[in-house]
Simulated scan of single mutants.
Amino acid sequence: MDLSRFKKAPRNISLDDLIIFENENYVVINKPAFVPSLDERTPDKSVSILKIAREKYGDIQLCHRLDKETSGALVLAKNPAAYRNLAMQFEHREVQKEYHAVVNGVHDFDSISVFLPIAPLKDGTAVRIDKLKGKMAETIFFTVKSYSKHSLVRCIPITGRMHQIRVHLQCLKAPIVCDPTYGGDMIFLSQIKRKFNLKSETEELPLIKRVALHAHIIRFRDLDESVIEVTAPYAHDFEVLVNQLEKSK
């Protein structure tokens, strides 16, 4: 199924509506899905988080990135000192991040660590496990809740490689829902709801039309060493998906 027609950035995005934390050094937003972190080299020149943020704050900087389809907590630095402070924490793996994902299959992960090296494919659009040429990557997984055919999983990345969580879950035979790049199947209401009736000659659409991954929590130190911890509420589509799974237990 081609879902490209649904994968468009929301219109008229207001940064003020996305902010979930702000002080004199940092802004943390709840990034919507389908909005790139940085400007893309595409003909349509779609809006980016950095572009929107600079319209409000001037020379603000992104401290890290999220995949275009991933929603959740994204940190921007208001000044060079704040940017350097967080860059050093990322370099020393001191920033703590927690993602939530809905995956295919019923799994019971209890601090399962995947420690496998990752290398990008030649076209740069995806990655693979490569024990010879890959860079080491580690992710720890916990099952939050299991359903009849799916699981909600908490993902703790120790390193920060491209598509790390997605490919590591594939290695556990638990690919993320709606992630065909790494073997994840679509999820339909008819799969989980009893007595589901679809109108004749109607195409059933997936419950979520993107990779079901959300950056839920981020924790780091401010310039004065105080700890900043921010929780990004689930994006609407992710929340709807989890609620439907809860109803269908």
Rank of each mutant, 00 (worst) to 15 (best):
R128M: 15
T159N: 01
L152V: 06
V102N: 04
V47T: 09
I217D: 05
V102G: 01
K249Q: 05
E94F: 09
A101P: 12
S14E: 06
G183R: 01
A81F: 15
T143H: 02
P175H: 02
S4I: 13
N79T: 08
K51S: 08
S71D: 06
D237G: 13
I129T: 15
S190P: 07
N243Q: 07
I49M: 06
A235L: 10
F142A: 02
H100W: 13
E246M: 13
L116E: 12
N104L: 02
S14M: 06
I140R: 12
L245A: 06
D179Q: 03
V35E: 14
V211W: 10
F238M: 04
P206H: 08
A126M: 11
D44Y: 15
P80R: 15
K193Y: 01
E24Q: 14
V103F: 03
R221T: 07
V240W: 05
T70I: 05
V167C: 01
V167S: 01
K51T: 14
I208C: 10
I19P: 07
E203D: 14
G105A: 01
P36G: 05
R161I: 09
D108H: 15
Y147M: 00
I52D: 04
I218T: 15
F238C: 02
D237E: 14
I158D: 01
V144Y: 03
Q96S: 09
L62A: 06
D44N: 12
R221W: 08
T125A: 07
I140S: 02
R11W: 02
K193P: 01
G184M: 03
D2M: 01
I112P: 02
K195M: 08
